[in-house]
Every structure is written in structure tokens, then in C-alpha cells.
């Protein structure tokens, strides 16, 4: 309803997000002109991966970005006190109070890219694969939510750092590529310690029927662990919070 109040704004930003999505696909098509594969993934497999990434990105941009921005602003301005006194989970209140649906078309583009890629590769995923894919996507979204929330929670220590919420979006390039792109220490960092390269790769591998069990399990486990850690980190951080009466 609120979105329809500003229709022009909605349509304009929707157009911008569609253009950025197209740009992203175009960029990878340029790379695929040089070689037929990226880390062993063919063009169609890459587009499926990009489709999955686009779904996740549209989702996180819709539900997380504004809330995380408000969260850090509450900490910086001291207005968090108001939320702490409410009879409801502060984390829930902080991270669910607003959203932006400008990215809905990106979501549709992501779906279309996945369907078209699967059709071109003549892959018909089984029901169990599709179900597992959606669970993996949810785990990936939760993982992004948790690490984003932890990054925002750093605002309790770092004063007036307005771009703190750009850290996780800044890692998006890692999510857009197959995990096989990273080798050596980078592989350990992005697949084990901070498994951000798994978030789009693993669900895509599930649809492509080439997922390795250990990575699927690690995606679910790391999402669960990071959620727990984010919660603990918030309650640790809140101890050093102070405000001046609002």
C-alpha cells in the first residue's frame, strides 16, 4: 500500500534495478566470450547461478537493506532505547519493520533465468531437488541476514560509520561466481570460514544435480551457527549501548 502511494518512485527504482540485473548478466556474458566456462561451469550453468544469485539479492535487498540501515541509525542516534523498552524481541523489531519491493522485477528475472537455463540444458529437476533448492536458498538468505546483522552490530563500537551497511553488499561479487573460482587461502576463507561463496553456488549445484553433500550440509550448519552467533553478538553488544534520554 505504501509502495503504491509513490508509484513513480517505485517504477523508477524498479527500472534501475532491472537495468542493473541486465548489466550483471551482460558482464558475465562478456567474460564467457573469452572462455566457454568459468571454473568449469558452462554458460547456461553460469546463468542459472546468476539467476539464483539474483533471487537472493532481490530478496535480501527487499527485506534486509532498509532494516539494517535503520538499525545502525537507531544505534548512532540513541533511539534504540525506545525499541529496547517494547515488549517484543528487539532483534525482530529491528529487522522486520520495513521493506522495499522495488526489486520484485529482479526476482522475476532471476526466476526466468533459472527456468530458461534449465530448459536449455534439458534438465528437469526432481521434486526433491526443487524442495532442497528452496531450503538451501532459505539457509543462504538466513546466512546473509546473520552476517549482515553482525556487521551492523559493529555500529555499537564504531561511531558514525554510515557505510557499515555496505560491507555485505560489497561482498556480492563473491556470491555471483562458482565456489570453484577460489583457490588456496581464498577458498578456505570464502567456503569454510565465511562461506559466502556457497550461498548461490550450492543451491545452483542442487538444481544441476552436482551438489556435494558436505557443502550442502555446511551451508545449513553455517547458517544456523551464524544465526546463533549474531544473536549472541547482539546481546553482548547491547551491554555497551548508552543513549541520552532521546
Amino acid at each position: 500500500m505504501r509502495m503504491m502511494e509513490y508509484r513513480g518512485d517505485f517504477l523508477f527504482w524498479a527500472l534501475v534495478s532491472i537495468l542493473w540485473t541486465g548489466f550483471n548478466f551482460f558482464f558475465f556474458s562478456l567474460i564467457l566470450r573469452v572462455s566457454d566456462t568459468v571454473a568449469g561451469w558452462t554458460a547456461d550453468e553460469m546463468y542459472l547461478l546468476l539467476g539464483t544469485f539474483t533471487l537472493l539479492d532481490a530478496f535480501t535487498w527487499t527485506f534486509f537493506y532498509q532494516n539494517m540501515q535503520r538499525y545502525t541509525r537507531h544505534v548512532f542516534t540513541g533511539s534504540l532505547t525506545m525499541l529496547l523498552t517494547k515488549p517484543i524481541s528487539t532483534i525482530f523489531l529491528l529487522t522486520t519493520s520495513s521493506n522495499s519491493f522495488n526489486n520484485i522485477f529482479r526476482f522475476l528475472i532471476g526466476c526466468a533465468a533459472i527456468v530458461i537455463s534449465l530448459h536449455r540444458m534439458e534438465i528437469t529437476p526432481s521434486i526433491s531437488s526443487v524442495v532442497l533448492y528452496f531450503f538451501a536458498l532459505m539457509a543462504a538468505a538466513l546466512f546473509i541476514y546473520a552476517i549482515w546483522f553482525m556487521a551492523s552490530t559493529l555500529s555499537f563500537w564504531i561511531e558514525k560509520l554510515d557505510n557499515i551497511n555496505e560491507i555485505i553488499p560489497g561482498l556480492r561479487r563473491v556470491m555471483q561466481v562458482p565456489r570453484g573460482v577460489f583457490a588456496g587461502a581464498a577458498s578456505v576463507l570464502f567456503t569454510v570460514l565465511l562461506p559466502i561463496s556457497l550461498v548461490a553456488s550450492v543451491p545452483s549445484e542442487i538444481l544441476l544435480q552436482k551438489a556435494e553433500t558436505k557443502w550442502v550440509v555446511w551451508l545449513f550448519v553455517s547458517s544456523f551457527l551464524s544465526l546463533l552467533l549474531a544473536r549472541k553478538f547482539f546481546y553482548f553488544a547491547i551491554k555497551r549501548y548508552s543513549s541520552v534520554g532521546n
Partner: peptide, 25 residues
């Protein structure tokens, strides 16, 4: 501090691009 973070955020995607190109080449 904000500027240092911007600098890191500007440099990081290009480092990732190098990984991508390495795997492509």
C-alpha cells in the same frame, strides 16, 4: 574511517575479478 571502508569496498570487487579471470584463463 568511513573513507577507508569505501576504499576497501572499491578495491575488493576487483580482487575477486582477478580470481574469476584466473579461473577463466
Amino acid at each position: 574511517t568511513e573513507m577507508i571502508l569505501w576504499i576497501l569496498l572499491d578495491i575488493f570487487p576487483f580482487i575477486i575479478l582477478l580470481f574469476i579471470w584466473q579461473s577463466v584463463l
